[in-house]
């Protein structure tokens, strides 16, 4: 830890886990959707469900969905700003569920009609982890440059992707592959030490076995 982890972070109160972390969860969901959302249904679990109002967790999630950062002073007015931006958000309080205490599940619909379901938890100190995308188990922290691919589950695809990263001199820090069924479709998350150049996306995206690929910068 450095001095700015002790005297810091600069954030919008009141809680690093329930406010700052929630902003980052919303922002990550928007990034994963890849475009401006127009309608979002948010299920709140655990402590998020019980204390969201007092902590402004609802406002924080919406602020993140609007693309705000955790130190944006507009977070407090995010609900009104969402209405102005034609973003329709519905909250649902869910009892139970085998989740981390600070979990939000967000079903997003984007401006082009695209949709995605993102589940994530705020794990303390403003840090987050995205645990599911469209039913695939993932582990995305937003601390690293991240490449997410949805591809056909067959030999050689992962090797091809990592080869392209190697050519660009990008070192992989963490990776996780997940699938719902053998041989159909897989979702891979690669977190790297170095920025991932757009060329990587340009090289991967046209490959027929790749259904979609997305670059995520650190939050």
């Amino acid at each position: 830890m450095g001095v700015f982890d002790i005297v810091g972070p600069v954030m919008i109160g009141p809680s690093s886990s329930h406010t700052a972390g929630a902003v980052r969860l919303g922002k990550m969901a928007r990034t994963i959707l890849g475009e401006a959302p127009v309608a979002v249904t948010i299920n709140l679990y655990g402590s998020f469900a019980r204390t969201y109002k007092g902590h402004g967790t609802d406002k924080a999630l919406v602020a993140g969905l609007l693309g705000f950062s955790a130190e944006d002073t507009r977070i407090k007015d995010a609900i009104n700003l969402a209405a102005q931006a034609n973003l329709h958000v519905t909250f649902r309080i869910v009892e139970g569920g085998d989740f981390h205490p600070n979990t939000a599940q967000m079903q997003l619909k984007g401006i082009s009609g695209k949709s995605v379901k993102v589940t994530g938890a705020s794990i303390g100190g403003g840090r987050i982890v995205i645990t599911q995308i469209d039913g695939y188990d993932v582990e995305i922290t937003g601390d690293y440059y991240t490449l997410i691919t949805l591809h056909q589950d067959k030999p050689g695809i992962i090797a091809m992707i990592t080869q392209i990263l190697a050519q660009q001199n990008v070192n992989i820090a963490f990776m996780k592959v997940s699938r719902k069924q053998k041989g159909v479709q897989a979702l891979m998350v690669l977190e790297t030490d170095h920025p991932i150049p757009e060329e990587v996306l340009a090289a991967i995206s046209p490959v027929p076995a790749i259904e979609s690929a997305l670059l995520v910068k650190p939050l």
């Binding site: 972070p9 954030m11 109160g13």
Partner: peptide, 12 residues
């Protein structure tokens, strides 16, 4: 507490 901007020091 009022959702203003602060510096966690060491925490919020």
């Amino acid at each position: 507490a009022n959702m203003g901007k602060i510096v966690a020091c060491p925490t919020a």
